[in-house]
Write a protein that binds this DNA or RNA. Sequence first.
DNA 1: CCCGAATGTGGATACGTTTTCATGCATCTC
DNA 2: GAGATGCATGAAAACGTATCCACATTCGGG
Lengths: 332, 332
Amino acid sequence: MNMRRTTIKDVAEAAGVGVATVSRVLSGGSASPATRERVLTVAAQLDYRPSALGRNLRQQRSGGIGLLLPDITDSFYSRLADGVLACARSAGEPVILCTTGDDPEREAEMIGALLEQGVDRVVAVPSGDGEIWAPTLRAGLTTVFAHRLSPGRDDVPAVLADDRAGVRTAVDYLTGLGHRRIAYLGGPGQGQRLAVFRGALGPLVDEELIVVARGSRDSAYAAAAGLFQHRPDVTAVLAGGNLLGEAAVLAARELDLRIPRDLSLIMFDDVPWAELCSPPLTVIAQPAQDIGYRAAELVLRGGGRRPRGVLLPTELIVRGSCAARGTSRSPR
Amino acid sequence: MNMRRTTIKDVAEAAGVGVATVSRVLSGGSASPATRERVLTVAAQLDYRPSALGRNLRQQRSGGIGLLLPDITDSFYSRLADGVLACARSAGEPVILCTTGDDPEREAEMIGALLEQGVDRVVAVPSGDGEIWAPTLRAGLTTVFAHRLSPGRDDVPAVLADDRAGVRTAVDYLTGLGHRRIAYLGGPGQGQRLAVFRGALGPLVDEELIVVARGSRDSAYAAAAGLFQHRPDVTAVLAGGNLLGEAAVLAARELDLRIPRDLSLIMFDDVPWAELCSPPLTVIAQPAQDIGYRAAELVLRGGGRRPRGVLLPTELIVRGSCAARGTSRSPR
DNA sequence: CCCGAATGTGGATACGTTTTCATGCATCTC
DNA sequence: GAGATGCATGAAAACGTATCCACATTCGGG
């Protein structure tokens, strides 16, 4: 009943060879064809599975890749995670998932836990600034950022959606429709995007129309509602994430703003429900899954010292949430 | 530059004690107050973090809990995962995430990978039948099922939503509205629910109106569209998951069935977009996050040999996707 | 005052693997 | 044919920890 796992030693004995030989055969080292086959058959016969524990201790690193996300509940991040999982699975590597809630402190805590586990490869959506990652990187773990980068850390490869182009496209689309008072509803860690937004809007930019929320649904709703109440003259809003978009729709409904008649809305990230929403939401699609996959690929390749990252294209998908600014609302 | 991690040995030397003592102090064993304090301060001073690798090898088990889900992209499962993560974090345990795609073969593969990693605690949404789990359980890992149980395995504790009550409530609600031709749109592993559905419907049950899809979005859409085309006389449908509900809405739109005028819809699982949908969807809410949390709790408690599981309540949330069967469509 | 018990402590061992190193054997070269 | 070169192989060490066991010290009771 209480039988021990079969170890490499058992295989060695049963095959009449040394443990070193077994290890070599299974690790792809050199061995004579005769012994190789013998070892292989014996191993299969005994149903031998090498223990990751022993191996990890020996080579001072746990296999597996750590995945650091703000919130697995967010559709964007769960799709990103799915991409990472797909790549990791094809490489036979386990994935350790941690959520940070966009809290730098918690992020640091998770990093600590990870490298206590011996994890030496991490895919992360960074929350904090570059400082937090300094000791981590010095500790020798290969890191790849996904979706956004950490300010002041350009020595870490990153896989990003082309925010610049996405924001510009969205802004151009809205201004093309005649909108002048365009708001940006942002989340944590979107400094990059904000800069592009300001740039694309040029002289039209109105700092009061730029509001950033924390990661939570409540915070997003509060930000959206506050914006709409405080500045009823906005005619269009760009939501920097699906949580923000959701909040915008809800807040607009609550205040009896009709989309798109009273308010045009573009949302970052195409989620399945964007099409089901009323009206269907015009979005800027981001290849969330690809981002995850490519990031995992990069972190698995690892050694390649090429901090140059990857930029994936975004796409404007026009549905029904934007209208030309014809029947405008009177200011105040 | 290339400095070694500080090990327990370093702490022992610096504190002038044996490694055994250090280990005991850090593991909560007995030690004199004097030495305890000395060891603790020295450890803190050296920033010593015990290596999980060494510990794991020694006690023949990796810490950490494995999480087996059909699809992390599905909002329900991502919320469930969030619950598991919350509980695991408060216990300081890492979580290894695997997705099975509802494929028993892939599930078995993942289980193999997990126990190769030395994982001995698993929270799973089982896909396959009980057979797959037999060797796993014999291998001594404590398992807790979540959301659904594996047919023929009543020796594993499970944390479930009260499907029975949920289905019954939904069916009663629909029949109360005058519906007679009620369809069930199911997914994988919902045998339990189906039985209840048949039971609750009684003599009204029509086997042709019961259709089950595989896990994917495409499959769900195909099932829904097929049902609506083949049997245009259905007046209400119960969707057994948010993917199925989404598919039902899309298929209904495609076929120009107006919800709720032509077709009433109740969806299992309350997702954020249910409220944004047009019309807002009437749902049976399941405490996905709680399910995950409780399951993790159970698997962490572990030893308690009480295969008795937990049943969490569901709730019917009435929105706008169901109507009384007044303006009925003429049969064929 | 002596002996048994209780307690604190450190040495040694084992966990399963990979990798280094030395050895033996066969083959090649001049 | 002798020395050099290559290759397959196994013994042994190392990774960092927890735990067993033996020993020392102290304390309490008779």
